[in-house]
Structure formats: C-alpha cells, structure tokens
Computed example of a mutant assay.
Amino acid sequence: MKQVTISNPFITLIVLDYGAVIQKLLVKDDEGRYMNVVVGYNYPSQYPSDTASLGACVGRYAGRISNGGFNLDFKNYTLPTVNGIHLHGGNQGFGKKHWTIEEVNHGDEPFVRLSYFSKHLEEGYPGNLKATVTYKIRNNELYIIHEATTDLSTVVNLTNHSYFKLDNENSIDHYFLKLNCPKKVETDKNLLPTGKLTPVSGTEYDFKSARQIGKTRFDTPFATDDDSSFAAMVYSKRSGISMEVHTNQRGMVVYTPKGFPAICFETQNFPDAPNHPHFPSSVLRPNETYRNASIFKFDLVT
C-alpha cells in the first residue's frame, strides 16, 4: 500500500493508493496549529477492514440503487444487493480497490492523480470503465476531480466519502451549517428515493440560513441550487475553521454517522437515478467523459 503527501503553506494532504483514500487533511486553526479535519486511521494497513468508506472514492455508483439493478438501452443489469439494496458500488466497490498512482506533482499547485480500471460487468456494471481521481491543492482549497470514460454505455456516479471533523470536540451539535439546497430527494424507510423532490422549508433539514446543527442528523440527499456560489458551508467557532463545498453536481448527500462525531458532504448525482428517468441522467456513453469537479475551501471565522 502506497502513501502520497502533497502540501502548500495552507494545506497538507495524505492520500493512499488503496481506495484512493484521503487519509489526512491538515489545515490551520485560528491559533495557527495544524489540525486533521478528516476522520481516518493512523495506519494504512487498517483500511482494508474499514466498513465506513473513510475518505474513500466511492463507485462505480455512489449511493443506493433499488430493484436489484437497472435497465439501460433495453437490457437489464443485475447488481449485488443486501436486503434488496445495492450500495456504493457493491460487494467490492472502488473504495476497496487498489488504484494506480498516475502522477504526483509538487509544484506551485501540487496534485496527485490516481486511476482504476473497472472491467466490463465488474459488480454487474456494463462497460470497461477507466476512472481517475485528481486531488489538487491551490492556496486554501482542495480540488477533487473525478473523471471516467467507458467503451460501452453504462452508469457512473463517483464521490469522495470523507468525514469532516473541524475541531477536537466529541460532538458536532455546535457546528454552524448552511446548505444552499432548497429541496431534498424524498426517501422511503430504506433510504431509497421515491422519485419526488420536496422543499426543505419548514422541516428540520432547512439550513438555507446558517444555524447550529443541534440534534439534526443526516443521511439525506439534497438537490443543489445551481444559482448559488457554494452548495454547503460549515464551521466551528471552537477551532475557527470553516469549510465551503462547491460542486458541479446536481446532488449532495449529507451524512452524519452514528458512531463518531463527523459530517460528510458527498457531492454526486441523485441516488437511484438509473431507475428514475426524470432524475439527472447518470448514463455515460462511449466518447463521453464523466466529470465530477468539487472544491473544499477552508478559511477562518471569528
């Protein structure tokens, strides 16, 4: 297992070739001390037994797919399921694969690019898929750029699954959160989309104005607002660290795990889009390039 470190005066990033995992992301707090703002293991050897996708690139399809698969171009594709649900790419999704380190650059805008080749019908998905993820740091911003090409029409939805923890407290209740997401994707008891988008106004998920998270907990797909400068913003007054999430994706799953204090911002397409024709399309055709470009911008608040 290989480990790559890139850094500039604002950010230090440590990435693994296993799962294209972000193991550590160090930014400065309001006293100038470096703080790791993602949850991760100390040792790379611990990641193969991880069940929470800590910092991993999730694919070939991030999120849930219903009906045991999907139909594409009048052909049914069966995917592995647990209790009828296909999650995060199946039994051995991209977060459990060894990626190839394609390039490391330590220049003015350091980056590391990794790739993974997913063979036709791996986990049931059609097409030989070449996926890449580029982690780049520019000033106080982390760029995460997922790209993919295929030789046969397929579906793809890649995201990074980092759990952000902005201070050393044992809670996120005091974090302030703003979501430029006027609607969420309605889900059923199994967290599968019903096909409806519902307004967040008047619900516990209304964070259109910044407020403390409090007791709200999330496993919630939101529809991002195309007209907003950022999709999400979160900050802790106890560390002074704030983070904005910018993305070209139509969806963002906000997730707070039960076992530890942290919050995920999974920028992606809507879950189960292959089974909801009116959702933004997740279909990738030959000669097209899938691209998920997201930016995580860090700053200090008083």
Results as ranks from 00 to 15, higher is better:
V4R: 06
I6V: 06
I6N: 02
P9M: 04
F10D: 05
F10V: 09
F10T: 04
I11R: 02
L13S: 05
I14N: 11
D17A: 01
Y18T: 01
V21G: 00
L26F: 15
L26H: 15
L26V: 14
R33M: 11
Y34E: 13
M35Q: 15
M35G: 03
V37F: 05
V38H: 07
V38Q: 04
Y47C: 00
S49Y: 15
T51M: 14
A52D: 14
S53H: 08
L54W: 00
L54N: 03
G55W: 05
A56G: 02
Y61F: 09
R64V: 15
R64C: 15
F74P: 08
P80E: 11
T81R: 08
V82R: 15
I85G: 11
I85D: 01
G89C: 05
Q92M: 13
G93Y: 14
G93A: 03
F94Q: 12
G95K: 02
G95N: 06
K97D: 08
W99S: 06
V104K: 04
N105Y: 14
G107R: 11
E109F: 10
P110N: 04
V112G: 10
Y116Q: 07
Y116K: 08
K119Q: 10
H120V: 09
E122F: 12
G124W: 12
G124T: 05
Y125T: 05
P126A: 12
N128C: 11
T132N: 13
V133G: 00
V133C: 01
T134Y: 00
Y135L: 02
Y135H: 09
R138C: 13
N139Y: 03
N140F: 05
L142Y: 13
L142Q: 06
H146A: 03
A148V: 06
T149L: 00
T149S: 06
T150A: 02
T154N: 08
V155Y: 02
N157G: 07
N157A: 05
S162Q: 06
S162Y: 07
F164H: 03
N168I: 08
Y175R: 03
K178P: 06
L179G: 08
N180I: 04
P182K: 11
K183I: 13
N190I: 04
K196C: 09
L197D: 15
T198M: 13
V200H: 10
V200D: 13
V200T: 04
S201C: 11
E204Q: 14
D206R: 00
D206F: 07
S209P: 00
I213W: 03
G214V: 12
G214C: 11
K215L: 11
R217L: 12
F218K: 09
D219I: 01
T224E: 03
D226K: 15
D226S: 14
D227F: 15
A232Y: 12
K237T: 12
R238L: 07
S239M: 07
S242W: 08
M243F: 00
M243K: 00
V245N: 07
H246Q: 02
M252H: 05
M252P: 10
V253W: 04
V254T: 14
Y255W: 13
P257Y: 05
F265D: 02
F265E: 00
T267H: 01
D272E: 07
A273I: 02
H276T: 02
H278M: 10
F279D: 00
F279Y: 04
P280A: 10
N287F: 15
N292S: 14
N292R: 03
L300M: 09
T302P: 14
